[in-house]
Design a binder for these strands. Structure first.
Length: 558
RNA sequence: GGUCCGUUGGAGAAGCGGUUAACUCAUAUCCCUCUCAAGGAUACAUUCGUGGGUUCGAAUCCCAUACGGACUACCA
C-alpha cells in the first residue's frame, strides 16, 4: 500500500496537479521592485480600524512601488461568518479611498488569480494536499477532539509544550496501509502537515518591520484541512499567497509566532516564501494596561464610528499614517495641501510596539482637514452627509432651498489664512449654524433663554440698547466700521469701551462694549458663542436682523 | 507554564557612545480679542522601566531583573 493510493483514496475527484496550477496562475508581469500586497479579511463583522490601517498601508506600498493590491476573503470559518459583512467591508474600504486593483470586490471579483474567496478554492487546496499526501508531507489524522483534549491535559500537567508533535503525533506514525484501512472503515479524519522541525533549533526569519528574528523551528503537525473540507488559515495563506504571487504579506503582529510554520510549509513545497511585514496592533489603555482596540468596548474600533459621525476619511487616514511612520507628521506639516499618496511610507520606519489610539489626535487632524476645504467643498460634504440619514430631511430641504446662503454660512471665517477650526466631524455643523434659519432660531427661544441675558444688565438698559442697535447699527460696512457703531451705542448707554476703562471707574459703567456685543449676539444667534457677529449680520441681512431684535423686545422685555 | 516581541513625558515619538533629550497632539498660564474658534508667547522628561557593569563619557553597548503585549484551536 502506498501513499499514492492513500492520496487517491482521499481525493478521488482531484485530477489536477500542482503543475497544472502553476500554469493556470503564471508569474505576474511586473516591473522590478513592484510589490504585490493583499488585504485578507474574514467576513466576521464590519471593518475594524486596525484592519483599515493594514489595508490602507497595503494599498499604499503597492501604489508606491507600482505593484498590485488585491483583496482575498478569508471565509473558511463558517461558524463565525456573519453574512453580508464581506460586501460591507469593501464598501467601507471604498469610503476611505481604498480601492483594490483586483480580487474580491464585494458584489463581484476581478483578476486572473481567483477565485478570491477561500471558500471557493477548495479544489486548489485539495490539489496541493493530494500531492503532499503523495509525497508524505501531509497525512490524515484520526484523533478525536476528546483524545486531543486529554493529551493536552497530560502535557500541561507534565509542563510540556502542548500540541501535536513528536511522539504525541500518533497518527503520523501510522503506515499508509493502516491509514487506508481506517478510512475504509469510515473513521473521520483531518489532514495534518508532517513537520520535521526541531523545537530546540532556531530559525532566522526576516520581517520588514522588525528586521531579523530568531524563532524556534516549528515541530507542530498542524491541521491543514479541517473535517469540513476547508483549509485552516495557515495552509490557505501558504497556498493562496503562492499562487496569487503575493510578494509582501502584511498582517497583524499576532502572526509572528506562526511564522516558522509558514516558512517551513513554503520550504516543504519548494516554494519561495514572500516577504513578511508584521504590523503592530493599535491599542487602548485600560486600567493602566495596554490592550488591543476592541470592537466591543471601544466605539472607535469600528470604522463606522467615524463614518457615522461624519469624520473626513482623509483625516482618519492622516492620523493612521502618523502612527505608522513617525516621520510622517514632519512631512505633513510642510505638505498640508499634498495628497497622502505623496508621502513615502516605509515598513522599516514603523515603531515596534503598538500605539495607543488617541482620539484627541484624530480630532486635531480632523479639524485641520476641514479647515483646508473651501466653503463649496465643505457645503457639499455636509449635504452628502445629511443625505445619508432620513431624519435630516427637513434640514436638507432648508439648506437646498438656498444653496448660496448655505455656502456663505460655511464660508464664515473660512477662506482665509487662519480659518476657523471648529469642526471635527460633520454632525457638529448643523447644530452650530441652525440659528441662521428662522424656524430653528425660534426653536432656540422656546428653551429658557431668559437666563442667557446678562443679569447685570437691567431691562430698561437692555431695551435701550436693542432699540439703538436697530437704528444706529451700520449694516453694510467693513468689520471695523461696523464695530465702531457698536462702540457708539455702548458709549450712549454708559458702557465702557475697554476693560481698562471699567477697571479705573467700576461704578461709572454698566458694563463694557463686550456686554453690548453679547446682547446683540444672544438676540441674533440665541447663544453666547457664535462666529464673528459682523459675518452673521451680513448673512442675515438687515430685515432679518431687525425682525430678530423686535422679537427679543417683544418677548423678553417687560 | 512555554516561546517570541517590546519598555524614552498624559499620548504619538526622534535619538543609534559626547545634544540644553528634536518634533506633534493634549494640558496650563499669558497676549490678542465683541463671545467662541483660530492665531501668538511661555511652561511642562535633571532624565530615557529598575539594578549592576563597560567607558574619560551611556537613553544609546553588555548582564541581570521587573513590567506590558502577542501566540500557545479542526478561529482567523
Amino acid at each position: 500500500m502506498s501513499y499514492e493510493q492513500l492520496a487517491d483514496l482521499i481525493f478521488p475527484e482531484i485530477t489536477t496537479t500542482i503543475s497544472d496550477l502553476e500554469i493556470r496562475f503564471p508569474q505576474r508581469n511586473l516591473n522590478d521592485g513592484a510589490e504585490v500586497l493583499r488585504f485578507a479579511p474574514s467576513p466576521t463583522g464590519f471593518l475594524h480600524t486596525g484592519s483599515l490601517f493594514t489595508a490602507f498601508l497595503g494599498q499604499k506600498v503597492a501604489r508606491q512601488t507600482g505593484g498590485v493590491f488585491f483583496v482575498r476573503l478569508e471565509d473558511t470559518d463558517q461558524k463565525r461568518e456573519i453574512s453580508g459583512t464581506g460586501v460591507e467591508l469593501l464598501s467601507q474600504l471604498a469610503k476611505f479611498g481604498v480601492f483594490p486593483h483586483e480580487g474580491y470586490l464585494g458584489d463581484h471579483e476581478s483578476g486572473n488569480y481567483g477565485p478570491y474567496a477561500q471558500s471557493k478554492r477548495a479544489n486548489i487546496y485539495k490539489t496541493v494536499i493530494k500531492q503532499m499526501i503523495n509525497d508524505n508531507i501531509a497525512y490524515p489524522c484520526f484523533c478525536s477532539t476528546d483524545k486531543l483534549q486529554q493529551m493536552r491535559a497530560v502535557q500541561e500537567a507534565n509542563k510540556e509544550v502542548t500540541g501535536y508533535y513528536g511522539h504525541y503525533a500518533t497518527c503520523s506514525h501510522l503506515s499508509a496501509a493502516e491509514m487506508i484501512e481506517k478510512i475504509n472503515n469510515g473513521e473521520p479524519y483531518v489532514i495534518r502537515f508532517r513537520s520535521h522541525g526541531n523545537h530546540n533549533k532556531m530559525v532566522k526569519v526576516v520581517d520588514l518591520v522588525r528586521g531579523e528574528l530568531e524563532l524556534s523551528e516549528n515541530d507542530q503537525h498542524i491541521v491543514i484541512l479541517k473535517s469540513d473540507g476547508l483549509p485552516t488559515y495557515h495552509f490557505a495563506h501558504v497556498v493562496d499567497d503562492h499562487f496569487m504571487h503575493t510578494t509582501i504579506v502584511s498582517r497583524g503582529e499576532e502572526w509572528i509566532s506562526s511564522l516558522p510554520l509558514h516558512v517551513q510549509m513554503f520550504a516543504a513545497l519548494n516554494w519561495v516564501s514572500p516577504k513578511y511585514a508584521h504590523l503592530p496592533v493599535i491599542n487602548k489603555l485600560e486600567n493602566g494596561n495596554k490592550r488591543k482596540l476592541s470592537k466591543r468596548k471601544d466605539p472607535e474600533a469600528a470604522v463606522s464610528y467615524f463614518l457615522d459621525l461624519g469624520y473626513a476619511p482623509e483625516a482618519v487616514l492622516t492620523y493612521l499614517l502618523s502612527i505608522a511612520n513617525s516621520n510622517f507628521e514632519e512631512w505633513w506639516t510642510t505638505n498640508k495641501s499634498s495628497s497622502l499618496d505623496d508621502f513615502d511610507f516605509s515598513f522599516a520606519k514603523m515603531s515596534l510596539d503598538g500605539a495607543l489610539f488617541d482620539l484627541e489626535k484624530v480630532n486635531f487632524f480632523a479639524r485641520e482637514f476641514f479647515a483646508t476645504l473651501t466653503a463649496t467643498q465643505m457645503a457639499e460634504r455636509v449635504v452628502d452627509f445629511l443625505e445619508l440619514s432620513d431624519k435630516n430631511q427637513p434640514v436638507l430641504k432648508l439648506i437646498k432651498a438656498d444653496t448660496p446662503k448655505f455656502i456663505e454660512i460655511m464660508n464664515i471665517e473660512r477662506e482665509k489664512e487662519n480659518p476657523r477650526k471648529d469642526y471635527m466631524y460633520l454632525e457638529q455643523v448643523w447644530p452650530s449654524i441652525s440659528f441662521f434659519y428662522e424656524s430653528y432660531y425660534l426653536e432656540l427661544f422656546k428653551q429658557n433663554l431668559n437666563d442667557t441675558f446678562n443679569e447685570s444688565v437691567d431691562r430698561v438698559t437692555l431695551s435701550n440698547v436693542l432699540n439703538d442697535l436697530k437704528t444706529l447699527m451700520v449694516y453694510a460696512a467693513t468689520n471695523e466700521e461696523w464695530f465702531e457703531s457698536i462702540k457708539v451705542i455702548a458709549s450712549k448707554n454708559d458702557f465702557a469701551l475697554s476693560k481698562k476703562e471699567i477697571k479705573q471707574n467700576p461704578d461709572k459703567f454698566k458694563g463694557t462694549v463686550a456686554d453690548v456685543a453679547e446682547i446683540l449676539r444672544i438676540s441674533l444667534t440665541g447663544s453666547k458663542k457664535s462666529p464673528n457677529l459682523h459675518d452673521v449680520i451680513k448673512i442675515l441681512k438687515k430685515a432679518e436682523v431687525d425682525q430678530r431684535i423686535n422679537f427679543i423686545i417683544a418677548n423678553f422685555i417687560r
